[in-house]
Simulated assay, not measured.
Amino acid sequence: MTKKITQQEIQDLAVEAIHKYFEACRARVPAFVQQHYRYPGAWRTNRRALGLDLLRAPINLFWAPVFGVLSVVRIGLQLLRWQRAAALLGRVPEGFNTQVQHYLGLCIRRDLMRLDCDSDSLEAHITRKLSARFGDAHPDPQEQQAFFHRAAAIVHEALQEYRVTRTASSDITNTITSTLVGAAAFQKFTPGGIGIGFLIAALVARYQAEHDFFLGKTLGRFYYQLFPPTPSWQLTAAALTLVLVLLACFASFSGLVTDPIQARLGLHRVRLQKMLSHLERDISAQTASSFRPKDQYVARILDLFDAVKSHLS
């Protein structure tokens, strides 16, 4: 008499196979970081930004604060168990998928997780484990396909979150760049593009006022040192837009500098290891992706600080 296969046996073996698969993925992380985030791989990764990404990057960085707020609201809705509203917010796009993000997503699937490899994929690990234990009596192929379909959705969501970290890293790079530019060029503390935009607007307004001063430019310079003119909202908006767009264009290929630094500091390794750990847990439990990197929230805090600092200056 053939022993009946219990659902618990199948689940236990599947979890073992999932654990073995992700152990293999984690072992590939150092080589993946070396290949794609250090030179010469960093150039192969980031050279894709020198094209339409120069248009996508500014839009992504302008949209990122809005998406960050919506992400916080979505987490709050999930905690309140308002799943339908949270699911609707989950459909909001994080921005345009840049060529660099698309390339890294493909590389993670191909080189790190090997999802398309017949021998090393998650599906192959689970199928081998079940076949070794139950032979031809392992679960119905349709049930397996349903499981792998759910797993693919979890992976897709996690990779979306990982792509958001690229925009967040660019935003943090902008903050650092703005601070350095402000200190070097203006001897001011400008923790972001907003600070530099307000500063440039003030300088342009003062320059125009000095030239238009009724007693001449020289006396105008002394007068407006004591009583700085207030820039118009049109000038301020134009300066802010120009600075933020230029910074965004710079940030679109700033990975040429920041990726090797993050690789050296171990940040890429930690981020990928954390993503894989979340995926292992979520796929084993068949729950929604729990991978929520903190980069975008750090970037939003810096943006808020920049806005408050600029308003108070």
Score class of each variant (00 low, 15 high):
113 M>Y: 01
100 V>G: 00
201 A>Q: 11
169 S>T: 11
125 H>I: 01
98 T>G: 02
22 F>P: 00
31 A>P: 05
156 H>P: 00
107 C>Q: 15
46 N>D: 11
144 Q>E: 10
234 Q>H: 12
25 C>L: 02
222 F>T: 12
284 S>L: 01
197 G>L: 14
266 G>N: 01
197 G>W: 13
221 R>N: 08
115 L>W: 03
42 A>G: 09
168 A>S: 03
70 L>G: 03
42 A>D: 02
62 F>W: 11
262 Q>S: 12
25 C>G: 04
109 R>S: 08
36 H>M: 03
266 G>K: 04
161 E>T: 06
270 V>H: 09
221 R>G: 05
157 E>M: 13
233 W>P: 01
116 D>G: 14
248 A>P: 06
27 A>V: 06
87 A>L: 09
213 F>Q: 02
88 L>H: 12
76 G>W: 15
186 F>E: 09
257 V>K: 05
170 S>F: 10
134 F>A: 09
236 T>P: 05
200 I>P: 07
20 K>R: 12
267 L>K: 07
225 Q>T: 13
16 E>Y: 01
206 R>C: 03
183 A>Q: 08
62 F>S: 04
121 S>F: 11
162 Y>L: 00
198 F>T: 06
234 Q>K: 13
209 A>N: 04
305 F>L: 14
136 D>V: 12
48 R>L: 15
27 A>E: 11
75 I>K: 13
223 Y>N: 01
189 F>V: 12
202 A>V: 05
59 I>W: 14
150 R>D: 10
141 P>T: 13
5 I>T: 03
126 I>E: 01
198 F>G: 04
143 E>K: 12
109 R>I: 03
236 T>F: 04
264 R>P: 02
74 R>T: 11
110 R>V: 07
195 G>V: 08
136 D>R: 13
161 E>C: 08
214 F>A: 10
192 G>P: 07
205 A>T: 07
33 V>A: 01
84 R>L: 14
160 Q>M: 12
86 A>S: 15
233 W>L: 14
43 W>K: 07
281 R>G: 04
87 A>Y: 11
297 Y>Q: 03
221 R>A: 15
269 R>K: 12
62 F>Q: 04
296 Q>W: 15
50 L>A: 07
214 F>R: 06
270 V>G: 00
142 Q>R: 12
39 Y>L: 14
140 D>E: 15
156 H>T: 05
80 L>K: 12
34 Q>F: 07
27 A>Y: 04
153 A>V: 06
180 L>Y: 09
96 F>S: 02
41 G>Q: 08
255 G>V: 03
76 G>F: 15
119 S>L: 10
81 R>V: 12
258 T>A: 11
213 F>L: 02
250 F>V: 08
136 D>Y: 10
123 E>F: 13
10 I>A: 09
101 Q>Y: 04
61 L>M: 08
37 Y>T: 01
236 T>I: 14
237 A>P: 06
200 I>H: 07
193 G>T: 10
22 F>Y: 11
207 Y>C: 08
31 A>T: 09
216 G>N: 00
172 I>E: 00
294 K>Q: 10
66 V>F: 15
268 H>W: 10
92 V>T: 07
109 R>L: 01
86 A>T: 09
171 D>E: 12
272 L>M: 05
77 L>F: 15
280 E>D: 07
172 I>C: 00
151 A>C: 03
108 I>Q: 00
270 V>P: 00
132 A>M: 10
147 F>C: 06
133 R>D: 02
226 L>H: 05
199 L>G: 02
302 L>H: 05
290 S>I: 04
